[in-house]
Design a binder for these strands. Structure first.
Lengths: 173, 173
DNA sequence: TAGGGAACTAATTGATGAATCACTAACCAG
DNA sequence: CTGGTTAGTGATTCATCAATTAGTTCCCTA
């Protein structure tokens, strides 16, 4: 049982969680800091004690969402047997997509945001995930690991869209 | 040589082209109708003679961009030999991605826009593309056509992201 | 050549949003 | 109990934007 004091760090985390929800639901550019504040049950100006700009808040939210995927994949890679590796990774991503849908919707939005800092965060995230999967496929002795990694990522991106548009038929076969 | 009179229809088309560029570069919600107007070399209010709202303009832009893909794929399906079908489709999409990058960037944005009319347009577009590809794979006698269609679409979506983030390594293998 | 309509714009409006400022309340150490 | 620090807010500012209104220009034709 962890205490839930209102420390500065806790507040920061609460604001990020609220931002992920609101940005995902409303759209980053259309969402207002007032809406984020309301969701976090604080006043709008108080957000700016923790994040210097709205964009800095988006960056923090993206950081959280990439770490969700990266940590999960690292855990799978560290424990899965070579023959279950790919199915376990797929299952792990599927669980994230169910439990943290908004974080993935936010990543999808960020794919087309042109701000340099956002693009860099997205490239880092994708690059790290790709590295983890590719290394794991290699270590598992999977043939054509580069192609298999590409196909794994591709299917993941189609799952995202299938989820976002509520079109299950896109990913089924 | 077609005449380039300034008819009502031409202006409409010009505005849509300008909107595709500006929305793709700036982001739909952040982009202003004034920026679109400037790109189209008309005044900002004049846009509203052709489109009742900013959202109606986005819908028209999405319509253009989906027809680009759909028409191109239909042409390939109508002329390609069964053994070249998939490579020809891939090549066709690659050419669209090069020549009409902004239209695809706009589609990517629209994947996460929650407005009902936009979601419906996106579902129609994806559904029609999927139908065309699946039917063509079946007619060509390709085994597991549903799975192959899913993988084809998945690779396409990864190509989009690879292009948007300028990460060529994502799609290569 | 008068006038009617199509193409187009300047000026404005009402609403909204990010960010800042000036302030209060609660707590805690010496 | 007091002086400093942390947590927090109401009110405001300045900018911006979608959409409307009220016009002007220009061409075609009867």
């Amino acid at each position: 049982m962890s205490k839930s004091e209102t420390t500065s760090v806790n507040r920061r985390t609460e604001i990020i969680s609220a931002a992920i929800e609101v940005f995902a639901e409303i759209g980053y550019y259309r969402a207002t800091t007032a809406q984020v504040a309301k969701r976090a049950e604080i006043s709008q100006p108080y957000i700016f004690r923790f994040f210097s700009t709205k964009e800095a808040l988006l960056l923090a939210a993206l950081e959280v969402s990439w770490m969700r995927v990266i940590d999960s994949f690292r855990k799978v890679v560290g424990s899965a047997s070579p023959e279950h590796l790919e199915t376990d990774l797929i299952q792990a991503y599927d669980e994230i997509l169910n439990a943290y849908r908004n974080e993935i919707l936010l990543q999808m939005q960020a794919q087309t945001i042109q701000e340099d800092s956002i693009r860099e965060a997205m490239r880092n995230g994708f690059g790290e995930v790709r590295r983890i999967v590719l290394e794991a496929f290699r270590a598992a002795g999977i043939p054509n690991p580069e192609e298999r990694t590409m196909l794994f990522l591709a299917r993941g991106m189609l799952c995202n869209i299938s989820t976002a548009l509520n079109m299950p038929e896109l990913k089924e076969f």
